[in-house]
């Protein structure tokens, strides 16, 4: 438990930092990076969880989860960047449009 605590606090810190950036920065690239920072926070806690018991052999389940999580995060980031490039090419700026109802 004690060995886990610093990792958990760092992970939660990264999560909150990313959330703050996601909500406050208008530029989409920063938003995408922010989501990645949040993801890193979650993965950090997951990796640290492998040592949740005192046994010398780490628990393999969280590590399997982290690999899947990273794959998902990479795919999502690739999709986001692709959409961002498309939006920047068609609108000239990398920010979200507002009102749709005209």
């Amino acid at each position: 438990m004690n060995a886990l605590l610093p990792y958990t606090l760092t992970g939660v810190g990264l999560f909150c930092l990313g959330l703050h950036a996601l909500l406050t920065h208008p530029h989409l690239l920063r938003k995408i990076l922010a989501v990645n920072v949040m993801g890193s926070g979650v993965f950090l806690i997951l990796v640290a969880l492998a040592k949740r018991s005192d046994s010398p052999v780490p628990d393999p389940v969280p590590q399997a989860l982290v690999i899947t999580g990273i794959v998902v995060a990479v795919a999502a980031t690739a999709l986001a960047l692709n959409l961002l490039l498309g939006l920047a090419a068609s609108s000239g700026k990398a920010e979200l449009a507002e009102d749709l109802d005209e």
Binding site: F15, L22, V35, L100
Partner: peptide, 27 residues
């Protein structure tokens, strides 16, 4: 189209945020 791309990115960011919160809860 520009509207569709903008809507899609907003949707993607929201759904990623939701998933990460869910995953942290699962952790």
């Amino acid at each position: 189209s520009q509207d569709a791309l903008s809507g899609a990115i907003r949707y993607l960011l929201a759904t990623m945020l939701g998933s990460l919160a869910y995953l942290l809860g699962v952790v």
